[in-house]
């Protein structure tokens, strides 16, 4: 299988990538690790005329501890997130969940920014960023803007990113509560999650429970109101409308959300000590 023809452009810097995007507009796609985009192109489900490769923009690959948050460059690979000592100490949820994405080969290429910008609701890391109350930093022709992750995802493969904007950084506040958990149920180990759940303290992110990554808001409210974990988890599927596919019916997904949220909250509580 061969991707349709396109013209390849390599950006040397984030700035250059933004100016190439401005030049080619809608006809262009950013190529990071390529592990979401190239398979789609080979299946001819995506046919951009230009690919702007940011793979060499090393300035976008970093994990840094800032005063009140952890800053992760958009081009940071899953492999680097998985093995980061800083994340292991400060945001183990992100390190652990990154290690569950795809397979080792995919993690050697796939990037956090690519996954978030792709807007796939079955993808693990966007829901983790959501659960961590992350902020997405985006560069465009008119400068830099910061978007709360809760406002970033619009629908299947749809985000608030404009065609001429580049996701450059993910800012993750240091969590108030140390307890965390990542629960993922798949058919095969390599498959996308049927449902996955990311828990940090009493924040809960849901993977594949709708057209975007979600927060389990009813559960979070119940916890805030003092409900038990069991009772709060029973509300995990409220307000969600998951898809039916070959792996699962919506009813099953809702059931899994309740089970995995309960397990996640219990594990997080155990870790918090």
């Amino acid at each position: 299988m061969i991707p349709p023809k396109f013209a390849y452009r390599r950006a040397g810097s984030a700035e250059e990538a933004v100016s190439l995007l401005a030049e080619y507009g809608d006809e262009a796609k950013i190529l990071a690790g390529g592990h979401s985009l190239l398979p789609l192109m080979k299946l001819r489900l995506a046919q951009p005329e230009f690919l702007i490769d940011i793979g060499r923009v090393h300035e976008l690959s970093y994990i840094r501890g800032e005063a009140d948050h952890i800053a992760v460059g958009a081009l940071t690979r899953y492999h680097d997130l998985e093995h980061s000592e800083l994340l292991a100490a400060e945001l183990p949820l992100l390190a652990h969940a990154s290690g569950k994405v795809g397979d080792p080969q995919v993690r050697h290429r796939g990037t956090i920014g690519g996954s978030i910008a792709h807007g796939e609701s079955a993808s693990d890391v966007p829901a983790v960023v959501l659960a961590l109350d992350g902020t997405l930093v985006v560069s465009g022709p008119s400068g830099v803007r910061e978007i709360p992750s809760s406002e970033f995802f619009l629908g299947p493969f749809e985000t608030v990113l404009e065609p001429d904007e580049l996701l450059t950084e993910i800012r993750l506040p240091r969590p108030a509560s140390p307890g965390w958990s990542f629960q993922k149920l798949t058919s095969r180990a390599i498959d996308w999650a049927i449902v996955a759940v990311a828990v940090q303290g009493s924040s809960v992110g849901l993977v594949n429970m709708g057209s975007t990554p979600l927060r389990a808001t009813a559960t979070e409210r119940a916890l805030a109101d003092g409900a038990s974990i069991t009772d709060a988890a029973a509300r995990a599927a409220e307000g969600t409308s998951p898809f039916a596919d070959r792996n699962a019916s919506p009813e099953y997904r809702k059931h899994l959300a309740r089970v995995l949220v309960r397990r996640g909250l219990e594990e997080a509580a155990g870790r918090a000590g």
């Binding site: 398979p39 299946l43 058919s187 095969r188 180990a189």
Partner: peptide, 14 residues
């Protein structure tokens, strides 16, 4: 099930 993403060919992990 016309790709190996969808056809759940068994792997070592299962």
């Amino acid at each position: 099930t016309a790709t190996l993403l969808d056809y759940t060919f068994i792997s070592a992990a299962e």
